[in-house]
Computed example of a mutant assay.
Amino acid sequence: MTAPKTLARIAGFLYLIVAVLTSFAGLVNTRIVESGDAAATTGNIDTSATLFRIGLVSELVGAVAFLVTGMALYLLLKHVNQMVAAAMVAFVAVSVAMQSLNLLNQHAALTIATGQGYTAAFGPKGSGQLTLLFAAMQHDGYLIAQTYFGLWLLPLGYLVVKSGYFPKVLGVLLMIGCFGHLVDVFARLLAPDFGANISPFAMTPAAVAELSFIAWLLVKAVRVPEPGTRVPVIAHSGPLGRLGQGGEVDRG
C-alpha cells in the first residue's frame, strides 16, 4: 500500500507536467495559427513545422500525464467517497480521449501545410483554407474537451474538502474553478466575442486553484495527523488509481 504522502507528491509532479506541457502546446498554437488568415497560418506552419510537431507531441504527453494524475488521485482519495472518486476519473478519461483524438486535426493541418501534393491538387489558396479549417477544428475541439477539464474539478474539490488532507479552501477554490471553466466554454461557444473578452476572468479562479493545489501537493503533500488522532486509510487500492491533477484526498 503506497503511503498518502508518496501518492500526493507523485500526483503533484504529474500535475505539474500536465500544466507545463499543455501550456507550452497552447503557446505554440497561439504563435503559429493566425485566426482567419489562411495564408499566414499555412506559411507559419510550413516554416515552423518542427515546433508545431513538438507542440503536438507535448500536448499528447500532457494528456497521458493527466490520465495518470487522475489515477493517482483516485488512489489517494477513494477512501473519502469511492463513487465520487470514480466520477472524477471518468471525467478525466473522457477529456483525455477527446483531447487525444482532437490532435488528428492539428496533424492534418500540419500535413496539408507541408505537403506539396495538396497545393498541387487544391492550389495554394485551397490548401491554405484546408489548413486553416483543420487548425480551427483543433482549437474548437480543445474548447469542447475543456468542458470535462472543468467538470473533473467538481468531484476533486469535494474530495479535497472532505479528506482532511488539505485546507478546505483549496477544495472550495477547485469547485469554483469548475464553474469558471464551464462559463468560459459556453460563453465562447454561444457568443464568441463576448466569451473571448470574459475568458481571462472566468479562467482565473481555476488557474489559482489548480496551481495552488499543485504547490500544496509538491511542498506539503498531505496533512499529517497529530499523534493519537485517527489516520485516514486508503481503502483497497484497485488497479491503477489515477494521479488526480490535484493531490486531493477526497477523490474517492
Rank of each mutant, 00 (worst) to 15 (best):
V161H: 14
L154A: 06
F166K: 14
L159Y: 09
V161T: 12
Y165W: 01
G180H: 12
G150A: 02
L153Y: 10
V169G: 00
L154E: 04
L154Y: 07
G150P: 00
G180V: 09
I176H: 07
I176E: 04
L182H: 11
F166Q: 15
K168T: 06
G180I: 09
L170S: 07
P167C: 05
G171R: 15
K162F: 06
H181C: 05
M175P: 14
F179E: 05
G157V: 00
C178L: 12
H181V: 02
M175L: 13
L174A: 11
P167R: 05
H181I: 05
V183T: 09
F166M: 15
G180C: 09
L170D: 11
L159I: 12
G177F: 10
V161G: 06
L174V: 08
V161L: 11
L154M: 06
L159D: 09
L156A: 15
L173S: 10
K162H: 07
V160E: 14
W152E: 01
L182V: 15
Y158C: 03
P155M: 11
C178F: 15
V183P: 02
I176R: 07
G177R: 12
L159M: 11
L182W: 15
M175S: 14
C178V: 14
W152P: 00
L170I: 12
P155S: 07
P167S: 08
P167E: 14
M175E: 13
G180P: 08
S163I: 08
G157D: 02
L151T: 03
I176S: 04
Y165Q: 06
L174C: 11
F166A: 15
M175N: 13
V172L: 11
V169I: 08
P155E: 03
L156N: 12
P167H: 09
S163N: 05
H181G: 05
L151I: 06
L151E: 02
L153D: 01
L151P: 00
K162S: 06
Y158I: 02
P155H: 10
Y158R: 07
V183H: 08
L151R: 03
P155F: 05
I176D: 04
F166P: 06
L159H: 10
L173T: 04
L174M: 12
G177M: 09
S163H: 08
P155D: 03
